[in-house]
Simulated assay, not measured.
Amino acid sequence: MSKFNIDNDAIRQLAELLDDTNLTEIEVAAGDNRIRVARQGTMVAAAPAVAPAAPAASAPAVAAPSDAASHPGAVKSPMVGVVYFAPEPGAAPFISIGASITEGQTLMLIEAMKTFNPIRAPKSGKITQIIANDGHPVEYDEPLVIIE
């Protein structure tokens, strides 16, 4: 019988992150350990309506991700977190539309549980579309940018 330790502080932090970002679920993994926190009930039904947090900015982006998700050049989020396109406030962004990039180049950072994770280009190409919004939350497998 293996011993399973539950990290109550990590669960609380994930629950707070759900509240802060209006996400419906979050999952983190470290080695063989995995923690998933999800909301149930009416919050799940409201998942497509995350737009009320920022209606003007999200309205155009809502149509783009559904088309972009199936695009062969879509770079999708490997985690739940908040996207940042620059290494620090006021700094030049990592990418811009029309920029040529190389495989492995940092495209953006995703902050998850107070850790900034670089998202690197899976291939070389040109940035044709930036879908994610700087400083806004993203969910797992959500399209972030298109590289052609």
Rank of each mutant, 00 (worst) to 15 (best):
L14N: 02
I147H: 02
M108K: 02
I11P: 03
N5P: 08
A112E: 02
S58W: 06
K3L: 15
V37P: 01
A121T: 12
Y84K: 07
G81D: 02
Q105A: 15
A121C: 14
L18P: 00
Q13E: 15
I146H: 07
A74K: 01
Y84S: 07
S2M: 12
A38K: 04
Q40D: 09
K76M: 12
D20S: 11
A38E: 11
A112F: 01
R12Q: 11
A53D: 11
D7C: 05
R34P: 03
P72F: 04
L107Q: 03
T115K: 09
M79A: 08
F116Q: 12
T106I: 14
G73P: 01
H136A: 13
V37F: 01
Q105H: 12
K123H: 15
R12E: 13
D20W: 01
L144I: 15
A38D: 07
I35Q: 01
E25I: 00
K76A: 08
F4N: 14
D7Y: 07
A121N: 10
A51W: 11
A46Q: 15
E111C: 05
A47W: 07
H136V: 04
V62S: 11
I95P: 01
M1E: 13
R120S: 11
E148S: 15
S77P: 07
L18K: 00
F4C: 09
A86Q: 12
P93A: 10
T24P: 00
A46K: 12
I26Y: 01
P143T: 06
P143V: 07
G98F: 08
H136K: 14
T24Q: 03
G90F: 06
P60T: 06
D67N: 07
A132K: 00
A38Y: 04
V145S: 02
G135E: 06
A59W: 07
R120W: 05
I97W: 03
N33E: 12
P93F: 05
A47N: 06
A63F: 06
N117G: 06
S124V: 08
M43Q: 05
I147G: 03
K114A: 13
I127S: 02
E142D: 09
T106F: 08
A54E: 06
A10S: 14
D20H: 08
L23G: 04
V80D: 00
A10W: 00
S100W: 09
L18Y: 00
S96Y: 10
P143Y: 05
F4A: 12
G73N: 00
I11Y: 02
P137M: 08
G98H: 13
G73E: 00
P143L: 06
E142Y: 02
R39N: 03
Y84W: 12
N5S: 14
G81V: 03
T115E: 12
M79D: 07
K76I: 13
A45V: 08
T21V: 09
T115D: 08
R36G: 00
E148T: 15
L107G: 01
S77M: 09
L144E: 04
V44D: 04
L107H: 02
S124H: 08
S124G: 15
A59G: 13
